[in-house]
């Protein structure tokens, strides 16, 4: 529809009018008018393409090229010596075989799933609770709502470092609190105990992601019509029923997209873990991202790193069709001014 509408002359009234007015001699004039129209249309098309040119160039260079190159790398036998060259000898599936047989890689993949599932569950529950809280008109809620987004604005590496400070064995605020209020008698080794370290990065990541969930769910709750809530109240629905049967179904599209984006953010997490645990102790907090960094930039096995990257990319792109589906209104939308 969009392209056909734009075609000059296709139902363009100028031609018809001039043809009737000037009768049979109008052949030539009609022709020139059509050309004039065509150049205006062409000029606009050209302007549109020129406006897009920097973005297209950027996407090709900064996204398309690295993604394609990453696929190439994953099939190459790389070594520190090959970094200066654009290609390295073909390796077949050797890099992928390595990843699937490497115990650290497989546990990193499992950790990524656990970390993502745990983060999303925690972020959603706390984020939704806070979003509901902020819909109540209580004193100080405006200030509260603006301060709650702070974790989202800090550099991620800084957050990692702060949590490392807070979770220190000796002199860490978390242990100090647990001892001061009598929950623990000895400091807990949050960062060096392999069983606890994954929980530590999970807690830090939940802290980090809650504001995002709160803000999105809060704005969705604001859009629920008051009449709907009142009608449910009149029908005698209790608070829990109103939430479950009325409010949640209405805001479901936002919940879906929030989870989707939360998933995408969480499988990418890197800075936080590097700052907090560096993937340790004994690879207990190694995620796909941190292990891929280790393979490529510390062991200089770029081919193996690239193979792991591709697994991550596939994992992240699993939700791409769903994302496109949920964004379809925005995709279809067009309000061409250059009609």
């Amino acid at each position: 529809m969009s392209y056909a509408d734009m075609k000059p002359g296709a139902g363009a009234p100028a031609h018809t009018i001039s043809a009737t007015r000037q009768g049979s001699t109008s052949h030539k004039t009609g022709g020139t008018q059509k050309t004039g129209h065509l150049t205006a249309w062409r000029r606009r098309q050209l302007a549109g393409w020129l406006f897009l040119a920097p973005a297209i160039a950027y996407i090709l260079f900064a996204f398309a090229l690295p993604i394609v190159y990453n696929v190439m790398l994953s099939f190459e036998l790389t070594s520190p010596a090959t970094i200066g060259h654009f290609t390295a000898p073909f390796a077949g599936l050797a890099n992928y075989r390595f990843i699937l047989n490497d115990p650290t890689s497989t546990t990193a993949i499992i950790h990524t799933f656990e970390f993502t599932a745990g983060s999303l569950a925690g972020q959603f529950i706390i984020g939704f609770a806070l979003a509901l809280l902020f819909t109540v008109r209580f004193p100080g809620r405006t200030v509260g709502r603006s301060l709650v987004i702070i974790p989202w604005l800090l550099p991620l590496i800084v957050t990692g470092v702060i949590f490392k400070f807070l979770f220190q064995l000796e002199g860490g605020a978390v242990n100090q609190l647990l001892i001061d209020i009598g929950i623990a008698h000895h400091p807990i080794d949050w960062l060096d105990n392999p069983h606890l370290a994954l929980w530590t990065i999970l807690i830090a990541n939940i802290w980090l992601g809650v504001p995002f969930f709160t803000l999105l769910l809060y704005s969705a709750l604001q859009d629920v019509p008051v009449e709907v809530k009142e009608a449910a109240l009149m029908d005698g629905a209790g608070p829990w029923q109103r939430l479950r049967l009325v409010i949640v179904p209405i805001i479901m599209p936002v919940i879906e997209i929030t989870f989707l984006l939360g998933f995408v953010f969480t499988v990418k997490v890197f800075d936080l873990v590097i700052g907090l645990t560096g993937g340790g102790p004994a690879n207990a907090t190694q995620l796909i991202t941190t292990w891929s960094y280790n393979l490529s930039f510390q062991q200089f096995s770029f081919g193996e790193g690239a193979a792991l990257n591709n697994i991550l990319l596939v994992l992240a792109l699993i939700c791409a069709p769903l994302y496109l589906l949920l964004s379809r209104d925005s995709l279809r939308r067009s309000s061409g001014a250059a009609r």
Binding site: S2, A47, L52, P66, N70, L73, Y293, F297, A320, G336
Partner: peptide, 27 residues
């Protein structure tokens, strides 16, 4: 502007948002 490339480009932007930075950084 009504350009033929719009849907393709907007879709690829949505996908670009998904791509993890470590994937880009390595290449």
């Amino acid at each position: 502007y009504r350009l033929r490339v719009t849907v393709v480009l907007v879709s690829s932007l949505l996908i670009c948002q998904i791509v993890p930075s470590i994937v880009l950084a390595t290449s």
